[in-house]
């Protein structure tokens, strides 16, 4: 209370909130963050610990390698999703999300398989596939940034277009494909590590550098976390957000290459990957100090989901349960993040 008789003329001289520091986030919210983070690690440890006891050979080298290989497709798709979430913000309704990314993989796999079967050379087929993925990403970017459609709806629509396009190309059948590249990818190894695993390792490294260690990555976070602040800092928000969708599209087509190699062709049902991809991207948040999506967190989550599915298999639980568990994980993660947000305001 800085008011005294000297201030008689000063209508606003009293500044009542002077002595009251306002913390933007209460200590309690910080505590919740910590609890969630520790809780996440403990939960992961408990689940993996249980399987290591209950499922014979769960932590054997061959099984771990197997899980990593199986997780490559999920991981790469989830990286694309993570970028979109970073750039679009974590708001569950209006934030960034790419629901078309798994269906994108499906149609790209169909493009790859059919073009190989049409007698196209490997490099051309790869170029066509990646081009298809980029095009789908560009359509998403145009719908979200150009037309201003909510990402949730825009990418849902594009997802349906992708599913339709895949059906047109494949007539809902398995299309086998064989080529030198496909056999190299499915059976090749380097330093004793399979091509699938290499894909995941290299993609993780590239994305970690891009997102966590470059100016571009820092700005991507700014754009998603506080649009006005990014704008005030002179950043072209639209370009960053558009880029995230295009890169996600590219991730869809890269995953398609792996999927064709793994299944020796294109096969229906690619869109079943959507749920685990969302889980991996959102669950990754709980592994970061700032409670934001990170590539490292997404990678951990993708591997965790891989181990979960694998563990269920080993202890002979129907794989149908895995779907339910993933749904619960989404619910848990989303409610946790909204819990911290609420405590934070």
């Amino acid at each position: 209370m800085s008011l005294g008789p000297a201030a008689t003329g000063a209508v606003q001289a009293g500044s009542p909130h002077r002595d009251r520091p306002q913390t933007a986030r209460t200590a309690r919210a910080g505590g919740i963050d910590l609890m969630i983070r520790v809780g996440a690690y403990v939960a992961v440890a408990v689940v993996l610990g249980y399987f290591s006891v209950a499922a014979h050979g769960f932590f054997s080298l061959s099984n771990v390698v197997n899980v990593v290989e199986q997780s490559a497709i999920l991981g790469i798709l989830a990286f694309g999703m993570t970028l979109v979430v970073i750039a679009g913000g974590m708001n569950v309704v209006s934030g960034g999300i790419d629901l078309s990314i798994a269906a994108n993989m499906g149609v790209c796999a169909a493009v790859f398989a059919t073009s190989i079967n049409a007698g196209v050379s490997d490099p051309v087929a790869v170029a066509l596939t990646l081009g298809a993925g980029l095009a789908i990403g560009a359509v998403n970017a145009f719908a979200v940034i150009g037309l201003g459609v909510l990402p949730l709806l825009a990418t849902l629509a594009v997802m349906n277009v992708c599913i339709g396009a895949e059906l047109v190309l494949t007539q809902n059948t398995v299309i086998s494909a064989a080529s030198p590249l496909i056999s190299l990818m499915s059976s090749g190894t380097f330093l004793g590590i399979s091509v699938y695993a290499w894909f995941l390792i290299v993609a993780s490294a590239l994305f970690i550098v891009l997102v966590q260690y470059t100016r571009w990555g820092l700005r991507l976070y700014a754009v998603g976390a506080h649009r006005e602040a990014a704008h005030a800092a002179g950043l072209p928000i639209a370009k960053y957000q558009a880029a995230s969708y295009v890169i996600a599209g590219l991730c869809g087509s890269l995953a398609a290459l792996l999927s064709v190699a793994r299944l020796s062709g294109s096969s229906p049902g690619a869109n079943d990957n959507l749920l685990p991809v969302i889980v991996a991207a959102l669950m990754g948040v709980v592994f970061s100090r700032r409670m934001v999506p990170t590539i490292g967190g997404t990678l951990l989550s993708a591997l965790f989901i891989g181990f979960l599915a694998n563990g269920f298999q080993l202890i002979n639980v129907s794989s149908y349960w895995v779907n339910g568990v993933q749904g619960l994980l989404i619910l848990a993660v989303v409610s946790m993040t909204s819990l911290t947000k609420r405590a934070g305001t």
Binding site: R25, L218, R219, Y221, A222, A225, A233, M291
Partner: peptide
């Protein structure tokens, strides 16, 4: 008047956002 800062950034990142240039080659931070 509005505090236009990104809540999930560190103080250092906030100070240099948009002007990170000069912090390493190839856009590396």
């Amino acid at each position: 008047q509005d505090r236009l800062l990104v809540p999930t950034f560190t103080v250092g990142e906030s100070l240099f956002l948009g002007h990170e240039g000069g912090f390493g080659a190839f856009g590396l931070l």
